[in-house]
C-alpha cells in the first residue's frame, strides 16, 4: 500500500509528464491550475489520467473545489 507521500510524489510526476512541465517545478502545495497552466477541462483530463494510473474512480463531487496536489493526493489515497 502506498503512503500519502508516495501517492503525492506519483501524482506530481504524472502531472509533470502529462503537461510537459519540469518535475522540479512542482511541489505538493502548488495550485495545479496555475502551475500547469491548465483550465477546468484539462484538470478533468488529468483526473482521468490519475484514475487510470491508480485504478480508482473519483466521483466528481470528491474533487469539487480541489486545486492543490496535496488535497488531490489525499482524495485519491482515501480510495486506494
Amino acid at each position: 500500500m502506498r503512503t500519502l507521500e508516495q501517492t503525492t510524489e506519483e501524482i506530481l510526476s504524472l502531472a509533470a509528464a502529462h503537461f510537459k512541465v519540469p518535475r522540479a517545478e512542482l511541489s505538493p502545495a502548488d495550485d495545479f491550475y496555475q502551475k500547469l497552466r491548465i483550465d477546468s477541462l484539462q484538470a478533468l483530463e488529468l483526473l482521468t489520467h490519475l484514475e487510470n494510473h491508480f485504478s480508482v474512480e473519483l466521483p466528481d463531487y470528491e474533487v469539487q473545489g480541489v486545486s492543490d496536489f496535496r488535497t488531490l493526493a489525499s482524495r485519491i489515497q482515501a480510495r486506494l
Binding site: 477541462l41 478533468l44 483530463e45 483526473l47 482521468t48 466521483p59 466528481d60
Partner: peptide, 16 residues
C-alpha cells in the same frame, strides 16, 4: 418533458 423527449444525465462529466 413537455414534448415527450428524453433527457440523458451523466454522473461524470469528463470529456471522454
Amino acid at each position: 418533458f413537455i414534448c415527450g423527449a428524453a433527457v440523458v444525465h451523466l454522473r461524470t462529466l469528463r470529456p471522454e
